[in-house]
Design a binder for these strands. Structure first.
Length: 826
DNA sequence: GTTGACGTCTTACC
DNA sequence: ACGGGTAAGACGTCAAC
């Protein structure tokens, strides 16, 4: 018998003699690579009709035990059937646990179970790795003591161990969890990036590949002989380049191979080139090539390597961080700037045939630094990846790529057992179609503000508003009772013209969510005294993101636990709660001036901050369940403006300044990337001056300066570029807007255009006959003067006119050079 | 043919 | 391919002139 410590990293499975085996790659405490082979029970659930008698169940059991199948050349049969008392959607059910030989046959067995006594078949659509983790509880990225049999050139499992590039291969007998924190795990990471002449997969050649690991930096290339740049390793050809890359990957043998957009570009590109030369990209630990899976509609696919986790950082950052980021795009450069304070090396892309002598070193340096950035970003995000994996309990490969709704779902799936729940099935194509037909339901409440410049403002907001609403009112698929008053105790709310009822007896989904919210609260509290604890910070963040995604999950048509009514009720309960708080605030002598979804802004009306904080405490003591208000802050001044039409106050658009002079701007053009920089800076400065000074005098002078500069053509083109993202394939646009025209121009130039590309253009002077904006669009490097009229009337003026309107200043007249009647008139 | 009103499409944000 | 609410620009369409 062999013993080892073990941390599971990658999960994969294989079939041997008709059975499924899990193959888990990880490390031991001495950082040796270990592969564990294990198996687990394979089964599905058949939920029985309530009315069926014990005798009949016994008969049914015997009938099912006789099922034998011959599918896809595989002999398989039901091995055993047990009867269990389980829960399904929080209701007690009798269910048959039907054991089979092979996980892949469960579907076919389920098809054979169309008996009238069986009302539902469940639990055969989870994926074997997920099923294994649930069944055995050998959780990813946790430490274990393993006992097993060392496989050394064994013929067992078809001699699998001899083909595996690992230090030990063990057939597991038993394992025991080691307490948290006893061992650390520092993964071996290799970041890579490749450069080429063409951006289209299958065109052009790979010119260089950079590799960065712990104490290792290298650029491989067959180009240029001038190599002042010390990290360059010269090879003779593209073939040798690819082969050398493979050699280094094998030699370094990382736990994680890290790229940035490598699912969509680097690896597919490399594959296409390798195929051309008939090179096998055999970097998997079992000698296999990367597996390329197709992406969903519009999405890119994923690339999986046996035993090595390929992480495309772009995907992980996108799902977990993008909504909290300042960067306008997820381009490596911007992401690196925001998270590392570092950026790409300057190098303007050129076809390799046009690069001369000393420019090559710049190119190598550029290429190498991209890998450095990817490596450092991985280090930065490792605590998050680790904690997400531990909290959700799915293999880290999936965690690095799944969206938040999948994460929520996986979290549920891995916690069902605590509730004795049978998993719900994934909706099929038709089911999704049905769900989508329902259309939207009523959402949040937004208070219509009265435009103006205000003083002394306080803001309260609900902590995890929708999450705590779901918990407080027990809102979920399994607790929904319909829209007729039930006999049992219930929570009810009216929305969309009908009343929805939910059971008061706790459902598993709200219970799980409650647990997350409470844990997060605990971690957040602990963080106050140990701010640098990256792991706790990451775990707290993982809980926060899961909580925030829970509401969206229940309203998402693709979810196993989709419940439109629960989502609608969540919005409705939250709406009721916030309206009640607004009333309380006003009753107390404050004045509410704005509110949106989960936050309320009100005037302090001469009361002290202390009084306000005590009032908050009192409010909290009256709130139901785990609903909780917190103080967002006190603000010296704030402004709300009118809509363009000028009649009412604009919602979701305001600016605040706190006692330390810190600005908080929401919804204004300043924060929108589809406005040119000039307009955004202008607006930002105008807002700042007005909020700081409490009047418009300086701001107005500044505005006049800008007008003068535009008219004198003194503005740099850079400041006038408008950036808009392509949201769909270019030929699907019904309305041909300016950015579509710009995208078409880029296409003609063979620039890489895709869904998601950020299109940049400016509006130029053209002949009088061209009226539409799209007829004046030019790409940033095209010749032409900027269109003074357009930038004045469509960028500069709209950015500030509503703001100056607060002071009865008509900017339109100002711009036309007319005398300001309004100013003098008042 | 041009103009303006109004609806639709689209993006980006809360 | 997580939700709804909202602002706003530019195009598209149609009727009035």
């Amino acid at each position: 018998m062999s013993y080892t410590k073990f941390i599971p990293i990658d999960y994969d499975y294989f079939d041997w003699q008709g059975r499924n085996y899990i193959k888990i790659t990880g490390r031991n405490e001495k950082n040796k690579r270990v592969c564990i082979i294990d198996s687990c029970n394979v089964y599905l659930w058949a939920i029985l009709d309530d009315s069926i008698k014990d005798k009949e169940i016994e008969k049914l059991k015997q009938k099912i035990e006789k099922i034998e199948l011959d599918v896809k050349g595989r002999q398989t049969k039901v091995e055993k059937v047990e009867i269990h008392n389980k829960n399904f959607l929080s209701k007690q059910v009798k269910a048959l646990k039907i054991f089979a030989t092979n996980y892949k046959d469960l579907h076919d067995i389920a098809d054979k179970l169309d008996m009238k006594e069986i009302v539902k078949r469940r639990g055969y659509d989870l994926g074997f790795a997920t099923h294994y983790i649930i069944e055995k509880k050998l959780l990813p990225l946790n430490w274990y003591d393993i006992e097993g049999e060392l496989l050394n050139n064994s013929i067992e499992f078809g001699g699998i161990d001899s083909g595996l590039d690992v230090d030990f291969c063990i057939k597991m007998k038993s394992f025991k969890k080691i307490e948290d924190g006893k061992y650390n795990f520092k993964p071996k990471v290799l970041a890579f990036d490749l450069e080429c002449d063409e951006f289209k997969i299958g065109e052009g050649e790979v010119i260089m590949i950079s590799l960065v690991s712990d104490n290792f930096k290298k650029v491989l290339t067959f180009k240029e002989k001038n190599k002042k740049f010390e990290n360059v390793e010269q090879v003779k050809s593209e073939v040798e380049l690819i082969e050398k890359f493979l050699e280094y990957v094998k030699k370094i043998s990382p736990d994680f191979l890290v790229g940035y957009f490598s699912d969509g570009f680097d690896l597919p590109y490399l594959k296409a080139r390798a195929e051309k030369y008939n090179i096998k990209l055999n970097i998997g630990l079992d000698g296999s090539q990367p597996r390329f899976s197709k992406g969903n509609i519009g999405g890119v696919g994923t690339v999986k390597i046996d035993g090595i986790i390929h992480v495309d950082l772009l995907k992980f950052i996108q799902t977990t961080y993008s909504q909290y980021m300042q960067s306008e795009t997820l381009a490596l450069n911007e992401v690196a700037k925001e998270f590392l304070g570092d950026e790409k090396k300057p190098f303007k892309f050129k076809h390799s045939s046009k690069i001369d002598g000393n420019e090559w070193d710049k190119y190598f340096e550029y290429n190498l630094h991209d890998s450095v950035l990817a490596y450092n970003l991985f280090e930065k995000f490792w605590p998050d990846l680790l904690e997400f994996t531990r909290v959700i309990q799915e293999p880290v490969f999936n965690i690095s790529r799944n969206g938040m709704s999948s994460n929520v779902e996986d979290f549920i799936i891995h916690n069902l057992e605590k509730f004795n729940e049978i998993p719900e099935k994934r909706p099929g194509y038709d089911e999704i179609g049905e769900r989508r037909k329902f259309g939207k339901y009523e959402g949040a409440f937004v208070f219509e503000p009265t435009p103006g410049l205000y003083k002394d403002i306080s803001i309260f907001d609900f902590t995890s508003c929708y999450g705590s609403t779901i918990v407080t009112y027990n809102l979920s698929k399994s607790t929904f009772l319909g829209n007729k008053k039930p006999k049992q105790d219930s929570y009810s709310i009216e929305t969309g013209g009908e009343i929805l009822y939910f059971s008061t007896s706790p459902g598993f989904f709200p219970e799980m969510l409650k647990n997350i919210i409470l844990l997060r609260k605990k971690f957040k509290e602990e963080l106050k005294s140990e701010k640098d604890n990256a792991v706790k910070k990451a775990r707290s963040n993982a809980f926060k993101l899961l909580t925030n995604a829970a509401y969206g999950y229940q309203g998402f048509f693709g979810a196993r636990y989709y419940c439109r009514e629960a989502a609608a009720a969540t919005a409705a309960f939250a709406k009721r709660a916030i309206k009640e708080v607004i009333e309380e605030i006003n009753k107390r002598g404050y004045k509410t001036i704005y509110s949106d979804t989960d936050s309320i802004a009100f005037l302090i009306q001469g009361k002290t901050q202390q009084e306000t904080k005590e009032f908050l405490k009192k409010l909290n003591s009256q709130l139901p369940g785990i609903m909780e208000l917190e103080l967002e802050g006190f603000f010296k001044r704030g402004m709300w403006v009118t809509t363009r039409s000028g009649e009412v106050g604009a919602k979701k658009k305001y600016a605040l300044i706190d006692e330390n002079g810190k600005l908080k701007i929401r919804g204004f053009e300043t924060v929108r990337r589809d406005w040119c920089n000039l307009a955004r800076k202008l607006q930002n400065n105008v807002i700042k001056m007005i909020l700081e000074d409490g009047n418009e005098i300086n701001a107005l002078n500044y505005f006049k300066e800008i007008i003068k500069k535009i008219k004198a053509r003194e503005i740099e083109r850079e400041e006038l570029i408008i950036k808009t993202q392509l949201k769909k394939p270019i030929n699907e646009y019904k309305a041909i807007s300016p950015h579509v025209i710009a995208a078409k121009k880029m296409q003609e130039r063979k620039m890489p255009i895709d869904m998601g590309t950020l299109i940049e253009y400016f509006v130029a002077e053209t002949r009088e006959t061209k009226k539409l904006v799209r007829e004046k669009v030019k790409l940033p490097d095209e010749k032409g003067e900027y269109n003074i009229k357009y930038y004045l009337e469509h960028q500069i003026l709209p950015a500030v006119e509503n703001i100056f309107q607060l002071f009865n200043i008509n900017t339109k007249e100002l711009l036309d050079g007319k005398k300001q009647m309004t100013l003098e008139g008042f």
